[in-house]
Amino acid sequence: MFSILQTIWLTFLHLFHKAETVQYPEEKPYLAPRYRGRIVLTRDSDMNERCVACNLCAAACPVDCISLQATEDESGRRYAEFFRINFSRCIFCGFCEEACPTYAIQLIPDTEMGEYDRQNLVYEKEHLLISGQGKYHNYNFYKQAGVDMGVKGKGEGEMEEKPIDVKSLMP
């Protein structure tokens, strides 16, 4: 009996509490930088595409919403001929971002991508590609290691040792 009255009284006191509501279109909720929202393709610090069209994101995607076709430019650098994400299927799990070896594909804290026409949710490469580096600055896959793509010479990468001359005895 007493606990019932206490419950009613405590509920009544909530009249003087602040409402938790965020009045959305006028007042936006804070989204953490690592919030998994819209997917973008980023560029490196030289404004070249980071994506090397390795297909790992498409393989990791549990709902198969990513499709892309790899091709090469005249210098032999791989890039995606087309890169298509069907956001009507995407579940924003972030597996593609985890799978990406070059930090090219990233999820950003933007969720406002509503459309009236379902077909408009299919984003092509020109919609996905941004002219910035996204969350990981000053990272260039070709500067770290790997093949010479005109970005660095052999053994001149940031994390790379000089090549060892196996025919010499000098340490």
Binding site: T11, F12, H14, L15, H17, K18, A19, E20, T21, Q23
Partner: peptide, 8 residues
């Protein structure tokens, strides 16, 4: 009801 449930 919403006032008592900390809503608007």
């Amino acid at each position: 009801l919403s006032l008592w449930q900390d809503r608007l």
